[in-house]
Structures are given as C-alpha cells and as structure tokens.
C-alpha cells in the first residue's frame, strides 16, 4: 500500500502565540489505514488535523516549519479547493457543518463549489446518500434530523467530495452507544468498500480499537506513541497521556504484574476471557 500522508518535521505556532502547538511531528499514513489519534485535551490533536486538511496555514497563519504532503501534493502550496478533494474533515459538532435547508442540497454544497456540471452533482449526491443509507432523508431540513442522522449527513457532505482521506474529530462524543457503534460500522464499511483512509480523534476507544490499524498518541505537541492499538494501550506510559484504556486491556497489564502472562493483548472483554479459559484448561 502506498503512502497517503507524509508529515515531516512539522512544527506550528499560531500567530501571536509564544508556545509551539506542534513540535517536530513525523507521521506516515498508508492508504487504507484507520488510525486513532489520541492524547489529553490541549495536546495539539486539533491543530494537527487542521494541518492535514490545509486549514493551517490557509485559514490560520502562523509559524509553519516542515512539510505535510497528502497524496503527493504539498498542503502548503495548494489552495483549499484542491485539498478539499483529497482530505475531508468532519468536525465535532455536526450542526455547524450543515448549511443548507435540505439534506440533498447540503451534500451538493461541496460539488457545487467545485463548479461541477449539474449531472455530476446529481449522481454524486445520489451515490453518497445511498452509501450512507440516508436516501429517505433527502428532503429533510436540518432541524428535522436526530443527532445520529446529522452526523451522517455531515459525513455525507465530506464524502461527496470524494476524498482519499477522511479525518473525524471526536465523531461519537454526542451520540449514544448504539448510534455510535452504527457510525463506527459505517466507517468500516467506507474503508473496505471505497478504500477511504481514516484518521479518527476519539476518547471512546472501546468501539474503534477493533478496526483501527494503528494508534498515535500525542502529548504537549509531540508524537509520543505510535503503533498497533494493542501495543499502545498496553504501554505503561499510556495512562499519563489521558487515554481511557479499555478495562480488558488494563486488566491485561495488571495481570502481567502478577505474573499472569497472556499471549495477546486483549482489546475487548471476550478476547481476554477466551485466553483465560485456554490457560485454565
């Protein structure tokens, strides 16, 4: 699999800020990956996301060092119109990402901005609604949607731009567990069917660890851990970075201290109990 995102020695400092929000970040994302980005509040996650889709430095100027390359193009050099077709960014609150009065029109917003022909917009809107299972909502107004539906519609607006990389900023924080797990299945589906690469900032790890290929942890503007979710979550330093470690994984580390070594790091309760049962036998 080819490299999609290549971040090299990226440091960024907002205008009129003394502190560097990002310091020498190195990150490589391969096509088709699903990466969890985690870290305590204020660690620079949101800033890194904005560097990946170009809001930094195009909308927020500041001291910018190093480089971010997405699908072979330099984020710094290309206008937002080009970048928006490579990288989609879904922000935390879907409400503020739905501008138009109907779902259909809102999904069309991005393609309209690209001045695509009407026929092309129509087919993209229909295709996106079908993919995300929101066809029945086409004519709904934003205030007629539930939180989960708003989230899907906002995601649809991003997908209609046909990006290779989609970044989600705490997508499940406003959802109940059932709706959250539906969203996670959707992420998986888009990943397998369209090959979309995902970077997801998330505090709630129980759902995502199952499908994530990697987990990256940031602290104080630096990348501090990077590896498979099981490796990162069983790392002894992880607790210090404000990451909610799933109980099953935490238990694995606790058991190790007692001398009970399990072969694999469990991410879910069943993975833990299965191994325990095997030991007992």
């Amino acid at each position: 699999m080819g490299s999609l995102v290549h971040i090299e020695k990226l440091s960024f400092r907002y205008l009129e800020s003394k502190q560097w929000t990002l310091s020498e970040i190195e990150l490589e994302v391969k096509e088709g990956e699903i990466i969890i980005l985690a870290g305590p509040s204020g660690c620079g996650k949101s800033t890194l996301l904005r560097c990946m889709n170009g809001l930094i430095p195009h909308m927020y100027p500041g001291d910018y060092q190093g480089s971010v390359t997405i699908d072979g193009i330099q984020v710094r050099e290309e206008p937002m119109g080009i970048l928006a077709q490579k990288v989609g960014l879904l922000f935390q609150n879907p409400e503020n990402q739905i501008f138009m009065f109907s779902v259909e029109r809102d999904i069309a917003f991005g393609p309209e901005n690209l001045a695509l022909p009407r026929q092309e917009i129509r087919s993209r809107v229909d295709e996106t609604m079908r993919l995300l299972g929101i066809e029945p909502l086409a004519q709904r107004a934003p205030h007629e949607l539930s939180d989960g539906q708003k989230q899907r519609v906002a995601l649809a607006g991003v997908i209609a731009m046909r990006p290779k990389l989609v970044i989600l900023d705490e997508p499940t924080s406003l959802l109940d567990p059932k709706t959250a797990s539906e969203l996670v299945s959707l992420i998986q589906d888009l990943n397998t069917r369209l090959g979309i690469t995902f970077v997801v900032v998330e505090h709630r790890l129980d759902l995502l660890t199952k499908l994530a290929t990697r987990m990256v942890v940031m602290n104080e503007g630096r990348k501090v851990l990077d590896g498979k979710p099981s490796e990162v979550l069983s790392n002894e330093r992880v607790g210090a970075y404000g990451i909610v470690v799933p109980s099953a994984t935490r238990l694995y580390s606790e058991l190790a201290k007692e001398g009970v070594k399990l072969a694999r790091v469990p991410l879910a309760p069943s993975e833990l109990t299965e191994q325990l049962r095997r030991i007992r036998r």
Partner: peptide
C-alpha cells in the same frame, strides 16, 4: 464560536474555490 466553526467547515468544503459555482437545482 459557531460562526468560526461554520467558516472552517465551509472552507473545508471548498467554499469560494471557483468564482462561478454550479447548483444542483435550477
């Protein structure tokens, strides 16, 4: 705060990328 977030979301969906955008409906 909301208008700031709106502006970010608009930029991220190529608002203003072309001087003459098209429209789904006419």
């Amino acid at each position: 705060v909301r208008s700031g977030e709106l502006a970010e979301a608009m930029e991220s969906r190529a608002y203003g990328a072309t001087p003459k955008p098209t429209s789904l409906y006419k």
